[in-house]
């Protein structure tokens, strides 16, 4: 691969540098806000793999987000920091297991059935945590100390430090982006693209379509879990809302906003969505009207789905063609 110096590449480089340097000049509030954006960016990319690249619309992606979050919380002892490696790998393993179990069932169905079945399975997890005492019921549970990232007693990264945490999630975002990019350029990725367009023909060409879809579902689920895990330790708190269909619908919205089938678009969509959410629920700016943020968000979502099917990036590219 050879990089040419174009305005676009230069802009990207400047943007990346600024994001990297953000904790050096920004206030704590903004660093944490951007950590959240990075985490939701990872989450949106994972769903985009399914929706944008395989054509599988899932309305239950929050299940992975929430499962991993609860795993992080349940494996964190109350009075000391948990072990990052233990709780992280446990969280991802749970997500892989859940993806395998529900994927085998949900992928027996197509289009609208798939939407409903994924929603139903996520709701099942929601009920488990909402109705039972496992994770503190409807109130959720707290993580009092962020897990310790240490090998044989030597602390590698101080995750309690908000700046370190930001850089840590930033690194994960870049790594996951690169992983997905490479994956999508491989034979495997091209086969997924073929399945999205014409599944039947792919089968006739000799592709075991089901296994391709299942593997993509598992990959998407585990990356969704990574996002959920980081979300839980950032806020030190998980509750059933993390698994609710609002979370699933929101991440779908981020994917659409950024333009489906574009990984950086998904990250862009996540940032727009999170910033918008901050803005319309900001009381100091909008006064009492801020309590109606869900009304504004509702109209925004309706408008995007009616008028901007290709997301904001679609708006730009259409504008530039004219």
């Amino acid at each position: 691969m050879n990089f040419k110096i174009t305005t676009r590449n230069l802009l990207v480089a400047v943007l990346l540098l600024m994001l990297c340097a953000l904790p050096l000049f920004a206030e704590k509030f903004y660093v944490q806000l951007f950590s959240k954006i990075l985490i939701m960016g990872i989450f949106a990319m994972s769903l985009d793999l399914l929706v944008g690249y395989v054509g599988l619309v899932s309305l239950g992606h929050a299940a992975f987000f929430g499962l991993a979050g609860y795993c992080a919380a349940l494996l964190s002892p109350q009075y000391e920091a948990g072990n990052f490696f233990v709780s992280f790998s446990a969280a991802i393993s749970i997500c892989i297991l859940f993806a395998l179990l529900t994927g085998v069932l949900a992928l027996r169905t197509k289009s609208f059935y798939f939407i409903m079945v994924t929603l139903a399975f996520a709701q099942m997890i929601f009920f488990i945590f909402h109705d039972t005492k496992i994770g503190g019921g409807g109130d959720g549970i707290y993580i009092y100390q962020k897990p310790l990232l240490a090998i044989s007693g030597i602390t590698l990264l101080e995750l309690e430090n908000f700046k370190t945490f930001y850089w840590f999630t930033f690194g994960w975002l870049i790594a996951i982006y690169a992983f997905l990019r490479i994956l999508l350029q491989s034979h495997y990725g091209h086969a997924l693209g073929g399945i999205k367009v014409n599944e039947h023909r792919m089968r006739a060409l000799g592709y075991p379509v089901f296994w391709y879809k299942l593997s993509a579902y598992v990959i998407a689920g585990s990356i969704g879990g990574i996002a959920g895990y980081f979300n839980a330790i950032q806020f030190g708190f998980v509750n059933p809302e993390n698994i609710s269909w609002h979370t699933s619908a929101n991440v779908l919205m981020m994917v659409i906003l950024g333009g489906m089938g574009s990984l950086h678009g998904a990250v862009f969509g996540a940032s727009v969505f999170i910033l918008l959410q901050e803005l319309i629920s900001n009381e100091s700016m909008l006064g009492s009207f801020a309590s109606h943020w869900s009304l504004m968000m509702g109209f925004f979502i309706v408008a995007v789905s009616l008028f901007l099917p290709n997301g904001l990036t679609g708006l730009f590219s259409r504008g530039s063609k004219k």
């Binding site: 994956l183 491989s186 034979h187 073929g194 593997s215």
Partner: peptide, 25 residues
Amino acid sequence: FTVFENVRLAAQALHQRPFQFWKRA
């Protein structure tokens, strides 16, 4: 897809290498 990509999709069906996902198609 281009003509080449269409046909390559067919050709690679015989040589599916899911564990070489890091190599470009």
